[in-house]
């Protein structure tokens, strides 16, 4: 049984107009341990959709189960939030304390975890994000990438099965972005977490198991990165650009050179070209 199952999910913010960021008729199943990348332009409904997974928005229409809980039942809100953590865009707006240990304890205290067990969870969460020993450090002294890793640790401390990233790399410099993507990769591979990642960088979606594309509130495509990210027409229709390697693949093809597989990364492109010779 999928860990997340949305069926004909619709949501409207109750005002008319073109910036009415609603979603319409979304059906999507996510398997446990899967990494889903959600791509789409600003305002395409990505955030509205994922806020349902964390029970931050009530289900208006349709069905949704998360980790076995029926999200349409308000009684399940807290159970769902315990199973599904969320990391947001601006790292500065996620901390309740400037002392890292206190911030990481916040979620645990919310769920009434006994005080004696808290330091152990905090320590483990910091180890997973690669920042052991940061307990007593101040959030004000961290780089953007480090702040975001602490925000991830804050979510990890309560040990959720699913972690949602809502454009968690958008405000970071390339170094910070790499740190966060590396952390997500580890959460997926080593901790077996189910990852839902919103992005508008196609390059980040390459690492996912499955890519979903949103356009004007609708889910317009889903499939493996190889299939979705190589569909230039589809991407441009959704306001996205294919990775450069895909562009090169198509240009080579129209010039009569056929690569055996569609490369998604520059490395794969160069490897494919090297193998031709």
């Amino acid at each position: 049984m999928p860990i997340i199952q949305a069926k004909n999910l619709s949501h409207s913010y109750g005002f008319e107009g073109k910036h009415n960021r609603s979603i319409e008729d979304i059906t999507l199943g996510v398997k446990k341990g899967e990494w889903i990348a959600i791509l789409g332009q600003n305002g395409s409904g990505k955030t509205t959709f994922v806020k349902h997974i964390n029970a931050l928005l009530p289900v208006q229409q349709g069905e949704l189960t998360v980790a076995g809980y029926d999200a349409t039942n308000p009684a399940n809100i807290w159970a769902i939030r315990q199973k599904c953590g969320m990391v947001f865009q601006d790292p500065n707006n996620q901390f309740v304390s400037s002392v890292i240990e206190e911030d990481l304890s916040f979620g645990l205290e919310n769920y009434g975890v006994p005080q004696s067990e808290i330091p152990g969870h905090v320590k483990r969460a910091l180890e997973i994000v690669g920042m052991p020993g940061f307990e007593m450090k101040s959030t004000h002294m961290l780089s953007g990438g480090q702040k975001q890793r602490i925000a991830i640790a804050g979510v990890l401390a309560i040990n959720p099965d699913i972690i949602v990233f809502d454009e968690a790399t958008a405000m970071l410099d390339p170094e910070g972005r790499q740190e966060v993507i590396g952390t997500i990769q580890r959460l997926h591979a080593e901790e077996g977490k189910t990852i839902i990642m919103i992005s508008h960088l196609v390059e980040e979606a390459v690492y996912a198991d499955r890519v979903v594309i949103f356009q004007q509130g609708r889910l317009v495509a889903e499939g493996t990165p190889e299939v979705v990210l190589s569909d230039v027409a589809l991407l441009s229709c959704a306001g996205l650009k294919p990775p450069m390697a895909v562009r090169a693949y198509h240009d080579l093809q129209s010039a009569g050179v056929h690569l055996p597989t569609i490369p998604l990364t520059n490395k794969a492109l160069v490897e494919a070209i090297c193998q031709l010779n």
Binding site: A248, D251, V257, N277
Partner: peptide, 28 residues
Amino acid sequence: LLSQCGFQTPADIIRYEELQPLLLSIAR
């Protein structure tokens, strides 16, 4: 990356438009 594979590539290629013809000639 291509130069690491042993191909001769000029070091001043920075745009796709400059890379594309090179890719083509290497692939051929």
